[in-house]
Design a protein around this nucleic acid. Structure first.
Length: 135
DNA sequence: ATGGTGACTCGCG
DNA sequence: GCGCGAGCCACCA
């Protein structure tokens, strides 16, 4: 709502793909939060669904269009500027490692300075394409 | 159709 | 800053 091209009738079935497409726009060395991704897609309260979308990404070998290899999932953290995977120690470590590898400072507690690394986000024109399914 | 489950968020104490 | 409780959403049995 409020966004050009927003069409409620197609949001459900395409939600995950839209999430992946937005995340693919995040440049290396930058991060954003689950909530912000949801907001960009016109679903201000769908932060949990965004996290769920990422957790469902399959391995790099998967034939799927979107996999953990094609979607930079590591660039999405929580609104507090911290890595959000407390139940999966291994995955959390990997995320921190991948981020440091692209120049993002992550401290031992998984904290990241959003004042420095926060991604500005998409412009309405770019969002329009994703919401219309052109991406 | 219904209820349980998360890689979420915000507000309080 | 930290832990809790309460909303919120899309998936999947």
């Amino acid at each position: 709502m409020g966004f050009p091209g927003y069409d409620p009738s197609m949001t459900v079935s395409n939600f995950y793909q839209q999430v992946y497409q937005v995340i693919q726009q995040i440049p290396p060395g930058k991060v954003t939060s689950y909530g912000r991704v949801a907001l960009m897609l016109g679903h201000p309260n769908a932060a949990r669904a965004v996290g769920y979308a990422l957790s469902s990404l399959k391995t790099a070998n998967s034939p799927d269009t979107y996999t953990s290899a094609t979607v930079p999932w590591q660039r999405v953290i929580n609104s507090q500027g911290r890595i959000s995977i407390h139940h999966r120690e291994q995955t959390a470590q990997k995320q921190a490692q991948m981020l440091r590898q692209e120049g993002v400072a992550v401290d031992e507690h998984g904290r990241i300075d959003l004042d420095i690394y926060l991604w500005e986000g998409l412009h309405l024109v770019e969002l329009d394409d994703i919401l219309k399914g052109k991406g």
